[in-house]
Design a protein around this nucleic acid. Structure first.
Lengths: 152, 152
DNA sequence: GATAGGGCTTCCCATCATGGGAAGGTCAAG
DNA sequence: CTTGACCTTCCCATGATGGGAAGCCCTATC
């Protein structure tokens, strides 16, 4: 009666892979699914709606931790919009920082590439600069710390 | 006579952590270091120069695989600069793709945040859009695939 | 009714670069 | 001779995701 779906159907309907659905359940991002007698997971419309929410948030680059917070706020009738805003702002700041980092790499790399003759001769400013201990352009701390895949 | 350094000194001199120096040796990015009778690794100027090369390339976001290629070319007197250029261009393309991806996330997120009143009321367009199955803006495939930490 | 196949289950492993920490050996200074 | 700083190796964690194996379940076909 109440259209329940297997994990494969839920995956197809939500855009979240079956593998990730199980993973999200294991880490507690979503609750344990109902099961058939044989142990198959079952998903109703509400669960699939949640999975879609998760996929969209992931598309925006939110970490699973952030998404946990967003889901909590989503289900909280008494939430304050500023709490949602705070999560979003935090992530936006991280995205901007990462963009800045990548652009500084792009700029430096473009600069290196510029002088390369791109032929059969061995002389190459790219290698020269990479091996130049006195080169200040590449000495700066680019701080490749944060991010992992949260941003991808 | 020939100023050999322990791994800690090599780390301080090159900016590559001792942990990562051992790791690079294990995966074959650099050769096995000379050892004292007690088993301590020893590094001379040439090795430290290589470590600095590696650190600079990592600062530009090159993957360890790419750096392996660059090191090979660096030590190859008969290299063609176009081979170096190819590695650099490939990485530059990846950086640009990632920048584009992040900017599309930033744009979408800024758009969501825009309408948020940022107060104590529960109404929030961020959650509304994330939960809206019909929202096309967040449905697009953002392809968060490539990258891992290579770019960070 | 038996069998083939596709989907489901759990469990382990890999990615990629990096660090934390434990258990134990070495060395120089006090 | 002890202390503390350094070195060694080995294992584990991160973060999101997927691959693959071994085995169970269900349905359709012969």
């Amino acid at each position: 009666m109440n259209h329940l779906h297997t994990i494969g159907e839920a995956a197809a309907d939500s855009g979240v892979s079956a593998k990730m659905i199980r993973h999200y359940e294991k880490i507690g991002l979503i609750g344990a699914a109902e099961r058939t007698e044989a142990g198959y997971r079952l998903y109703g419309p509400a669960e699939i709606h949640t999975l879609r929410f998760i996929r969209r948030a992931r598309n925006l680059g939110f970490s699973v931790d952030d998404i946990g917070e967003l889901l909590g706020l989503w289900h909280d009738e008494k939430r304050a919009s500023k709490d949602v805003r705070e999560v979003a702002d935090g992530h936006l700041g991280a995205l901007r920082a990462k963009a800045a980092e990548i652009h500084s790499m792009i700029d430096a790399l473009e600069h290196l590439i510029e002088g390369c003759t791109n032929d059969d001769k061995p002389d190459c400013p790219i290698l020269k600069d990479l091996s130049d201990d006195a080169n200040p352009a590449l000495a700066k701390e680019v701080g490749h710390k944060f991010g992992y895949q949260r941003v991808c």
